[in-house]
Design a protein around this nucleic acid. Structure first.
Length: 264
DNA sequence: GCAATTTGACCGAA
DNA sequence: TTCGGTCAAATTGC
């Protein structure tokens, strides 16, 4: 299964290279070659995924619980996740909303004294997989239109890469409780697993004009036409790409919880 | 000088 | 006792 994931992530990286080629105004021949590679890679990955799912569904036919994940559901979820990472990365250069949906944990900020030094179970969290930049600083995930201050980094058991801890820059001034953890994936160093905890109460975005556009996109759910065009070109159906109002999905937890094929 | 980052130490849940 | 999360002093960069 990791092979399939690797193919998908490779496809994402190819798309990013294609995007760079677009901005560099490379020849139509070169663009055509890149497009062919992308479609082949995604096509192959999808075929393998379908075979895998067909196999799994046949295995769980006699088991009423838990309900097997249907192929269409999984395809949709998987593509939402991939599209989300892709669109986040793409929007970096286009300067539009990246589609990171912050968790809404309700009460927001409530630091009791003493401040808990370990994560609270009742705090909602949301995982998002984000493609890393292929150029420039690849150690940090793409900007999500909030300003973060790093307050820690730790080696985590079972992970090759350290986990970085960030909190909202406005934490003290506006008592914004938002935090995030950034973990680079072992199997794909170009992808980060970003875990958001607590929602922003400060509602501050980065101050560039580009980002104010992003802020608008956040509230009304509309996205730049460039992004929509790209999404249509890639996936055909924009409705499956935006808006990102569904819960993002953690493919590890999904597949670890429902089968062992991902371990192969 | 100030703000952000780094990093070893500390705390506490499991 | 272990290990994830946080603190806070030292360091770095603007």
């Amino acid at each position: 299964m990791e092979e399939i994931m690797s193919m998908i992530f490779n496809g994402i990286n190819l798309v990013k290279e294609l995007e760079f080629s677009l901005s560099a105004q490379e020849s139509p021949e070169s663009l055509s070659t890149s497009l062919g590679s992308v479609s082949t890679l995604f096509g192959d990955a999808n075929e393998r995924l379908k075979i895998l799912l067909a196999r799994r569904n046949s295995l769980v036919l006699n088991q009423p619980e838990p309900k097997p994940v249907s192929m269409s559901d999984l395809d949709q979820i998987m593509m939402q996740q991939i599209e989300h990472g892709l669109m986040q990365d793409y929007s970096l250069r286009e300067g539009v909303m990246q589609g990171v949906k912050n968790i809404d944990s309700g009460p927001g900020c409530s630091f009791s004294t003493p401040r808990p030094r370990r994560r609270q179970k009742d705090v909602e969290e949301e995982k998002v997989f984000v493609a890393a930049a292929r150029m420039g600083n690849m150690d940090t995930p793409p900007d999500d239109n909030h300003t973060w201050r790093k307050y820690g980094q730790k080696e985590i058991l079972g992970f090759k890469f350290p986990r970085a801890y960030y909190r909202c820059t406005h934490e003290k001034l506006y008592k914004c409780p938002a935090k995030k953890q950034v973990q680079r994936l072992d199997e794909d160093p170009y992808t980060f697993c970003v875990t958001y905890r607590s929602s922003h109460t400060c509602h501050f975005f980065t101050t560039s004009p580009i980002s104010s556009t992003a802020a608008t996109a956040t509230t009304d759910g509309h996205y730049g036409s460039t992004v929509v065009n790209m999404a249509e070109a890639l996936f055909g159906n924009v409705d499956s790409v935006v808006p990102f109002d569904e819960s993002y999905f953690d493919y590890r937890s999904l597949f670890n919880g429902s089968g062992s094929d991902w371990d192969t």
